[in-house]
């Protein structure tokens, strides 16, 4: 066994990142953990309650409903945005001036602040003065997102698709352009159909970027707050109250700090678990 001289200087090199992670992740998270096991009535007086809040949240119908809505919403937007994004990416030009035009147009929705997106769609979809709302009603559809759950859902989904499909397009497009031209040429020589080219060359080659796209869209849509909050405020009734809206209502509206903290930890663990399962499952055959 050879003796190596101890050198503790390396700790200084990792220090900045340790401090950064501590302040932006570990400490806030631990604060939440702290709240989640205590009861408070203000005045900085806390009582230890153990896992009581976790039990309460997990058994509450309100949480079940919000979670159900959340999975439904995320499922719908993923089912629309991923295929749509891939389809748009496939239709985009590969060279020439069209590339930059398409890329800029695609990036625009991503550059708009989230609450502005909510406000835009709020006005756009107003049944009496909004372009979308008024047009739909003029065409004979009974559309009013402030009163009908279905209209509200359709509007929230349309808004999310409008806002975020671009991200999928950009990722898928990057994946597509990374495929060497020779593959397509080889497929042409083999006499492969357009569907086979997509199925056996483009899709497998896009697997990694699509995995990333699905993960990002899953996490983001699962945490959606600002846009539906500005658009519908969670209504009509509670029909568009997703997990994060419910969480804010509980923490700030009712000032139930303990249950809200417990709920955020459960919320966080669900996202972590689903993402991990998805990633391990799709990547198990890679290397």
């Amino acid at each position: 066994m050879s003796q190596k001289a101890q050198n503790n200087k390396a700790w200084w090199l990792v220090m900045p990142v340790v401090i950064l992670v501590a302040f932006n992740a570990v400490i806030p998270l631990m604060t939440v953990v702290n709240y989640s096991v205590q009861e408070t009535f203000g005045d900085n007086v806390f009582f230890y309650e153990g896992l009581k809040w976790f039990g309460q949240v997990l058994h509450s119908e309100r949480f079940h409903e919000a979670l159900g809505r959340q999975f439904l919403f995320t499922g719908i937007v993923l089912l629309i945005e991923i295929p749509l994004g891939v389809a748009i990416a496939l239709a985009m030009p590969r060279k020439g001036i069209g590339v930059s035009i398409c890329l800029v147009l695609m990036s625009l929705p991503l550059l708009i602040p989230w609450n502005v997106v909510g406000a835009m769609w709020n006005i756009f979809a107003l049944p009496d003065i909004g372009l979308l709302g008024k047009t739909l009603n003029a065409m004979g559809f009974d559309y009013n997102y402030t009163r009908q759950p279905f209209s509200a859902w359709a509007t929230v989904v349309a808004m999310d698709v409008w806002h975020w499909t671009s991200l999928v397009v950009l990722l898928a497009y990057a994946g597509l352009t990374a495929i060497p031209e020779d593959y397509f040429q080889a497929a042409r020589i083999d006499g492969a159909s357009a569907w086979s080219v997509f199925r056996y060359i483009q899709l497998p080659k896009m697997k990694r970027v699509l995995t990333i796209a699905i993960l990002l869209r899953f996490m983001d849509s699962f945490m959606i707050y600002t846009e539906p909050f500005v658009l519908t405020g969670g209504g009509p009734g509670n029909t568009t109250t997703f997990l994060s809206i419910d969480l804010v209502k509980m923490a700030l509206g009712q000032f139930d700090l303990g249950p809200a903290a417990a709920m955020s930890i459960i919320y966080f663990l669900i996202i972590l678990l689903v993402s991990w399962l998805f990633y391990t499952f799709t990547m198990r055959n890679e290397n």
Binding site: P180, D182, Q185, A186, Y200, I201, P204, K205
Partner: peptide, 15 residues
């Protein structure tokens, strides 16, 4: 009925 082999190694990735 031609066959071509390239500088890049071109095979179907998931076959």
């Amino acid at each position: 009925n031609v066959a071509m082999v390239y500088q890049q190694f071109i095979n179907y990735p998931n076959f």
